[in-house]
Structure formats: structure tokens, C-alpha cells
Simulated scan of single mutants.
Amino acid sequence: MKTKKEHAAIPQDLESLISALSEGERTTYNHLMHAIKFTPTILEKYASWSDTCYTRNCIVDTEKYELILICWCAGQATPIHDHDGEECWVKVISGAFKETIYKADDIGILQFERMGISNVNEVTYMKDFMGFHTLENISGEKCMSLHLYAKPIRKCRVFDVESETFADKQLGYDTRA
């Protein structure tokens, strides 16, 4: 007997993914993000680029989830941050990323935990109990990643390297669909 997950069609385009996310439960998000195989051309109408910082391009923002295309120029990276208690899946659409994860020790000092490299069609997952992380485009060229947050995050805590403290940061979008 096949499970409901095995019967579900793998989304072949963005509209199918949005429909599956909207109709499905949070428990299906991991399967969907791993199953999709999108080319950059599927997402290029949502892409915007900046030489100074990666861009956050909102595709869908509901109370249930948020789907964002992040566009990165070579070498761009996020600060070390959390996700305000929400789950985050990152699907590499083009390029390669280094993810570095940190944990706070008993007195709140950040300690390196581990580092990994993600390539096209690979997915990373993060939730606050796992620590804090930073993502960096290491591909040497422009690249894209698709981020799914369940539920949307409106703010996060960002680590300031100079003061070695965290500060709340309100999140916004560079573009909205």
C-alpha cells in the first residue's frame, strides 16, 4: 500500500509547488523541497541582483509559509543568524553554497559546530534548536537559492562580529511577486 506522500506528484513548475505547499501540511514541506528539480529559468522572473548584498525576492507570503528566491552575487554571505523559531529549507537552484553552523555555549559565546557545502538541487534544513548559521555563495558567479519558511519569519537575531552580540533585525523583501 502506497502512502499519501508516494502518491503525490512531484511539482514540475513553480505554480505546482505553490499549490502543493498551500494544500499540503507542514509535514510535506521537506519532501517537496527535496523532490523539486527547478532550473534557474523557472525562477528568473522573480530574480533581482545587487552588487552590494544578496536580495530577498518574495514569491509567496502567507500565514502558513513563505517562499523566497534569494539571489547572490559571487562571495555574498548572510550574517550569522537564527530563524525566530521557524523551520527553514534552502534548495540550491544554481551555484554552490557554504553553510557554517554555530552553537552558543553556556554563557552565550558562539562556537563553530560544523560546515558543509551544498550544490545544485541539494537542500539544507535549519531550525533554531540546531544553532545559528550563515550561508555564503562560493561558486564564483551569480547564483540562486529557494528558501521555504514555515511559518514566515518577520525578524531574526543577527550576530554582530565586532560587538560579539546579537541584535534583532526586521526582515523585508527587495521585490515582491
Rank of each mutant, 00 (worst) to 15 (best):
E6Q: 14
D174Q: 10
Y102G: 00
E6K: 02
R154A: 13
S48K: 09
F129S: 12
H133G: 04
E162L: 12
I117S: 12
K91C: 10
F97I: 05
G85W: 03
E25R: 12
N137F: 03
I117Y: 15
K98F: 06
L21R: 01
K37Q: 14
T62K: 12
F38V: 06
M144R: 11
Y102M: 05
H31P: 08
D82Q: 05
Y65G: 06
G140W: 11
K151W: 00
L171H: 07
G116F: 14
E25A: 13
K127F: 11
I117W: 07
K45V: 02
E141Y: 05
D105Q: 02
K98A: 14
I59Y: 01
G140P: 07
T27R: 12
D13R: 14
N30I: 00
K151R: 08
N137C: 10
D84H: 11
A167P: 00
H133N: 08
E63G: 13
M1Y: 04
I18H: 05
M144Q: 12
Q111G: 00
R157N: 12
Y65S: 03
K5Y: 12
T39W: 04
E87A: 13
G24W: 13
V120K: 11
E122W: 09
E99W: 01
R157F: 09
C143A: 14
D51M: 06
A20I: 01
S163N: 07
D128L: 06
S163Y: 00
Y54K: 00
F166I: 04
L135A: 06
Q170P: 01
Q76S: 00
I59S: 06
H81G: 05
H34A: 09
G116I: 11
I153P: 01
L43F: 08
I70R: 02
K142A: 06
K37N: 15
D13N: 15
M33R: 05
E63V: 07
Y46K: 05
E23S: 14
K45I: 00
K5F: 09
T3N: 10
A104L: 09
H133I: 09
C73K: 12
V158M: 15
P40Y: 11
P40W: 10
E136K: 12
E63K: 09
V60A: 11
R154C: 13
V60R: 13
I80F: 06
L110I: 03
P79Q: 07
L32S: 08
T55R: 04
D160S: 07
H7L: 13
C53R: 15
K4N: 10
Y65D: 01
P40T: 15
D160R: 05
A77E: 11
E136W: 01
E113T: 01
K2T: 08
E86Q: 12
D160Q: 09
A177Y: 11
S94E: 15
M144C: 15
I18D: 09
I109Y: 00
Y149Q: 06
R176T: 12
